[in-house]
Design a binder for these strands. Structure first.
Lengths: 219, 219
DNA sequence: TGAAAACCATACCGCCGGTACAGTAAATTT
DNA sequence: AAATTTACTGTACCGGCGGTATGGTTTTCA
C-alpha cells in the first residue's frame, strides 16, 4: 500500500516531465517505465490507460498549485492588514517562487493540455477549467477587497485584471522557455504587480515619499 | 509546379489545425493525408520527414504573423502622428482582429512548439525564438518612441512591457480555450492597452498637487 | 514534344499503445 | 502463522503509425 503510492508518484513525476518536454501524445509509456524501473504490466496496474494517467497528472498538478496559492495568499495576509499591501506581497512572493526555480519554471500542465485538448476526455478538461476558474476567483476576490478600500482606475474590469495574472504567468512561462531566459517569468509577474499598483494608486502617491505601511510592499 | 504549391499549402493547413488540437507528436501523417486526399508517397514528396513539416509549419506561421504586425502597425501610424495614439490604435486593431475570429483564436504555434521542444531540432527552435524576439522588438521600439515624448511611470522596464504583450496574447489564447470563452483574448489585449495608457498618462490631478513640482523638477 | 514536377501503389520494418493472462514476492490483515 | 490483498513481473500478442524503398504514372510547363 505504501510502496504502491511511491511507485505511482514516481510514474507521475517522470510522466509530467516528459509531457512538459514533448507533449502528451509523444510521451511514450515505454520510456516512462524504463526510467521508473518497472514493467509495462506495473504501469497498467496503476493506470488502466493513458487517459487515466492524464487525469491523474492533471489532478496532481491542480492540487499542488492549490497548495501553493493557499500558502502564498495566507502569508500575504499575515504580513499586512491592508488588502492592497497583502496582495502586493503575495505577488512578490509568487514572483520570487518562480524566479528561484533553478532551471526555470518546469511548465504549466494546463497550458499543454489546452493545446492538446482532443487527446483527453471531458473529465480532464473540466478539471482544468474548474481549477483555472477557482484560481481566477482567488485573484478577483483579492482585487475586490482592495477595491472596497481604494479607488480603482476607470475603464478597468477587475475580472479581466484577475484573469490577466494567469495569462501573464502562462505567457511568461512560454516566453521564458522560448527565449531560453528563465528570468522573464519573474519579471513579468513583477510587471503585473506594478500594473496592480498603478491601478489602485492615485498618481499622487508616486510623487509622495513612501509611507510606512507601503514600505514592505514597495520593496 | 503551381499545383505542387497548392497541395503543399493544403497539407500545411490541415497539419497546423491538427497540431493545435492534438499536439505535434499526436498529429498522424496518415490522418493528414487522408484529409488532404493524397497518399503517403505524396506527403513525403513535399516533406522528407516530420521534422521538415514542423519547420515548414513554423516558417509559415512566423511569416503570416509578420504580415499581420506589418499591417496593423502601419495602419496605426497612418491614423495618428502621435506615437502613443498610434500604438493604442494598433493595440485596438489587434484586439478586434483576435475578437472577430468566429471560433476564437486557432492557437499559437510557438506556444505549442515550446511545450514540445524535445520533438524538434535546433533550427525550428531558433526560427521560433528569433520571431518572438523580433515581435518583442517591434513593441519595444513603439514604446521607446512613446517614451521619447511622454514621461514613463517609474519602476517599469519598457522591455518587460513589450514582452508582456506576447505573454498576454499567448496566455489569453490558453485562457480562452481552457475556459471555452473566445472573448477572453480580446478583453485581455484591451486590458493590456489600458495598462499602456496608464503607463504614459499620469492623472491630471497629480500635477496640481503641491508636491508635484519637486518631482517634475527632479526629472 | 520532352523533360521535369507531382504525384500513386505496394511492400516492408520497427516501435508503441494497449490487452490478456498467468505467476510471484512482499506487505497487511486476521 | 496463515490467509489475503497489494504490487507488481513475464510473456505473448494485436493493430496503427512513422518512415524507407522502389518503381511506376500523370500532369505541367518550357
Amino acid at each position: 500500500m505504501r510502496k504502491g503510492a511511491e511507485t505511482r508518484e514516481r510514474i507521475l513525476e517522470i510522466a509530467e516531465a516528459s509531457v512538459l518536454a514533448k507533449g502528451f501524445g509523444a510521451t511514450s509509456i515505454e520510456e516512462v517505465i524504463a526510467e521508473a524501473g518497472i514493467t509495462k504490466s506495473g504501469f497498467f496496474y496503476h493506470f488502466k490507460d493513458k487517459n487515466e494517467l492524464a487525469r491523474a497528472l492533471m489532478l496532481r498538478y491542480v492540487e499542488e498549485n492549490d497548495r501553493i496559492f493557499d500558502d502564498v495568499f495566507h502569508r500575504g495576509r499575515q504580513l499586512s492588514d491592508d488588502p492592497l499591501q497583502s496582495f502586493l506581497i503575495t505577488l512578490k512572493l509568487l514572483a520570487e517562487l518562480m524566479g528561484d526555480l533553478p532551471n526555470g519554471h518546469p511548465g504549466c500542465l494546463i497550458a499543454t493540455f489546452t493545446y492538446q485538448e482532443r487527446l483527453f476526455d471531458r473529465t480532464v478538461r473540466d478539471i482544468a477549467a474548474d481549477a483555472v476558474r477557482s484560481w481566477n476567483g482567488r485573484f478577483r476576490d483579492a482585487l475586490n477587497e482592495i477595491a472596497a478600500v481604494y479607488p480603482v482606475r476607470k475603464g478597468m474590469d477587475l475580472d479581466d485584471v484577475a484573469i490577466m495574472f494567469s495569462c501573464v504567468v502562462d505567457g511568461g512561462i512560454i516566453m521564458s522557455r522560448g527565449l531560453g531566459d528563465p528570468r522573464v517569468l519573474e519579471r513579468q509577474i513583477l510587471a503585473f504587480r506594478s500594473f496592480v499598483k498603478m491601478l489602485f494608486a492615485p498618481a499622487a502617491s508616486d510623487i509622495m515619499l513612501p509611507s510606512a505601511p507601503a514600505a514592505i510592499a514597495a520593496e
